[in-house]
């Protein structure tokens, strides 16, 4: 078993019922956050439990752990984990300079301003270097957004969205998602015509809704 997986099970058993609010769990949960950063594992529920413990016992709050939790939440985009974490922070904690910097990254990513994100990323290396495979996690999110938006995309645009990666790396991502280069410089993503189409909603009256009236009309 992977170390994160083993830990996941121990932690899950720690968080049952009222035990979830036991401040003695804080240390273990903090270690677990660090393990997630190191091993590229992820456990939203445990991280939320830790933020809740911070909320209950503000004296124990550790900014660098909170930062890691938020960055890990970014790696799980397009899910809204980041928002869930943010709701458990206090206003004073939001004033922290690093937290603010992460909020900015979150804004960029949620608004799909990927080019800006990739150009500015190096300014955040102090925060990001501790999170294993952070860039690739973001690329996964980029691929998700691309896959729901595009039928065919120009190769250079795709390359740009993914952070100007080289030809080899691009091939790797294309293979992962089964995207093919159909003609020179054009990548086929997915057929969208079947899912995105104009809906005509016409009225259908089912028997049940008129049965009562018909019975009353006798």
């Amino acid at each position: 078993m992977e170390p994160t997986e083993a830990k996941r099970q121990t932690v899950a058993s720690m968080l049952r019922g009222i035990e979830r609010y036991n401040p003695e769990n804080i240390h273990t949960l903090e270690q677990y956050v660090e393990l997630q950063s190191r091993e590229n594992g992820y456990d939203l529920e445990a991280n939320l439990a830790l933020l809740k413990l911070y909320q209950f016992t503000p004296g124990t709050y550790q900014s660098n752990i909170a930062c890691q939790i938020l960055l890990k939440a970014l790696t799980n985009l397009p899910h809204t984990d980041f928002v869930l974490c943010k709701c458990l922070l206090g206003q004073d904690q939001m004033e922290d300079v690093n937290i603010k910097r992460i909020m900015y990254l979150h804004d960029l990513l949620e608004m799909c301003q990927f080019q800006t994100f990739w150009t500015e990323k190096h300014k955040y290396s102090d925060l990001l270097s501790g999170i294993k495979d952070f860039s690739d996690s973001i690329r996964k999110y980029v691929c998700h957004v691309t896959a729901i938006t595009y039928q065919n995309i120009e190769k250079h645009v795709l390359q740009q969205l993914l952070g100007n990666i080289d030809e080899n790396a691009l091939q790797g991502w294309m293979n992962k998602y089964g995207w093919k280069e159909i003609e020179d410089g054009l990548v086929s993503i997915a057929s969208q015509e079947d899912t995105v189409k104009t809906k005509n909603i016409t009225e259908k009256i089912d028997f049940d809704s008129v049965a009562g009236i018909m019975a009353a009309c006798r």
Binding site: Y150, Q151, N152, E154, L186, Q192, E193, V196, K197, T198
Partner: peptide
């Protein structure tokens, strides 16, 4: 959805 440079709207 977007096909190359064309937006198709539903």
């Amino acid at each position: 959805f977007i096909d190359r440079n064309m937006i198709h709207i539903a």
